[in-house]
Computed example of a mutant assay.
Amino acid sequence: MCPPCYSNHCNVLYIPLDEAAALLFSSPPMATTITDSQKPFSLDPYHVSEEFGFILPAPLAELPPYYQPWMDIAQHVTELIYSHMLRSHILKMPLLNTQLLESHRELRLAHLALSVMTMGYVWQEGEDDTVKMLPRNLAIPYCEVSQRLGLPPILTHADAVLANWRKRDPQGWKDNSSMPAGLVYEGVQAEPMEYSGGSAAQSSLLHCFDELLGVKHEAMSGILKMSFPVRVNVLSTCTGAFLTRMRNYMPPSHKRLIQDISLQPSLRGFVQQQACEPLTAAFQLCVTKLLALRSYHINVVSRFIIVPAARARQLRNQGNISQEETVSRAPTALEEKGTGGSGIMSFLKTVRDRTRDVFNLK
């Protein structure tokens, strides 16, 4: 939290977090009389908690016994991938009725289990032997659960991070050269569907920070595809459009919270109007922390994606990668693009630069 301001020349009052949130969402730009009909602000409708934030509190570890065939496979995806047996196990799986899933937590765990199986089924043999169709016994329940949650049928940030499971090969089948036509969900529709893989760009928390602090990522309708290289004069526009599209991979309640924040009076504008040095310093400290996080993210991506991918490309060009290394080596699609399909380094640097722009309060 930003520190309170006790300066005599600055008319700023410290407000507890819950009261500040209530003011942010319930107060119009101009002072008005509060009526009894106004409801107190609550994070509950957004599926957000003050203790855990956007993380799903106490996620389930098991589904009702009827869905044990899903869990038996989902809990052993890694072993089944390395033994090249995952696809055969999924093809033998029964087609289960999703109507027995009742609670939100059951649906979230089901979506997670089906997502893990789907990613493993597609990428079991690496990017050189992907599939064109997801079998109906997986595709139909997956799309039904996704529709009930308002999420797309692919492993998202909400699954792999917020529902607290480990993810493996989170690449999607949008903007991916290994699957240019997308993936057919058998029994759902005949035409291939394209979805971006799980990405930090789908983080509800980071989008909230951007809206609250006034970080602007310009967007233009119709430009939704990130490619590499991207010309400098359209990079910011493409970045904004990509981030806007990533909101479609969030739980609808989280997306609604971000939208509601964006409709409130500008916090940055308020700080500018007050012309209070301690308040300005507190605001800039918040921006500094977000900027540091994004710079650290760039370093992590460089170390764990860019450098290993470059090494894998070098070995591949030298013909030193064996068939056994196919699954474990860095996918070529990640050499220039992130897991969500973005031009990874140019994208991250543009997001960082837009965050730095917020420092100017003049």
Results as ranks from 00 to 15, higher is better:
M220T: 14
Y185F: 15
I223F: 13
W173Y: 15
G269E: 07
T237K: 10
R231K: 15
L205I: 06
L263A: 13
V145F: 05
M133A: 13
S146P: 04
S203T: 03
N176E: 07
T239V: 15
G182R: 06
S253H: 09
A200K: 05
Q202P: 01
K225V: 14
L134M: 05
F228W: 12
M193G: 02
L212S: 07
L183P: 01
F209S: 03
N137L: 02
M193R: 13
S177G: 01
K174R: 11
A139C: 06
S203W: 02
A200V: 10
M133H: 10
P265Q: 10
Y249S: 04
A163H: 08
M250Q: 06
M179V: 09
S199Y: 02
A241K: 04
M133C: 12
G197N: 06
L257N: 05
M226S: 12
R136S: 14
L134F: 05
D210A: 08
P141S: 06
R166D: 09
G198A: 15
R166N: 12
F209L: 08
L224N: 15
Q171S: 12
Q273P: 03
H217M: 05
G222M: 12
L162N: 09
M250I: 01
A200P: 00
T237Y: 12
P229I: 09
A158C: 02
A181T: 10
M250D: 01
L267E: 12
M193V: 13
R168P: 00
I261M: 11
S196Y: 02
H207L: 01
E144N: 11
G198N: 07
G269I: 09
L155I: 04
M133E: 15
S204A: 14
D210V: 05
P251T: 04
S196P: 00
M179T: 12
S177V: 14
A139D: 08
A163I: 00
R268K: 15
S253E: 15
I140C: 04
Y142P: 03
E211A: 12
C276S: 14
M179K: 01
A200G: 08
A139Q: 04
R256A: 14
N164K: 13
L263Y: 08
L243A: 03
S146K: 07
Y249C: 04
F242T: 04
K216D: 09
F270R: 11
V161E: 08
V184F: 03
A190V: 10
M179G: 04
M193D: 04
K216E: 11
K255C: 08
E194S: 10
R168D: 11
A219H: 12
K132N: 09
M226N: 09
A158N: 02
R148P: 01
R247L: 02
L212D: 03
M246H: 01
V145W: 02
P251K: 00
N233Q: 12
C143T: 14
H157F: 15
R268I: 08
R231H: 10
R136Q: 13
I261K: 05
K167R: 04
M226G: 12
F270D: 13
R148G: 05
R256I: 03
R148H: 04
L224V: 11
I223P: 00
I258W: 03
E211N: 05
M133L: 06
D175T: 13
I261L: 15
A158M: 00
Q259E: 15
I258Q: 06
R256P: 00
G240N: 06
E191F: 08
M193N: 08
M179C: 07
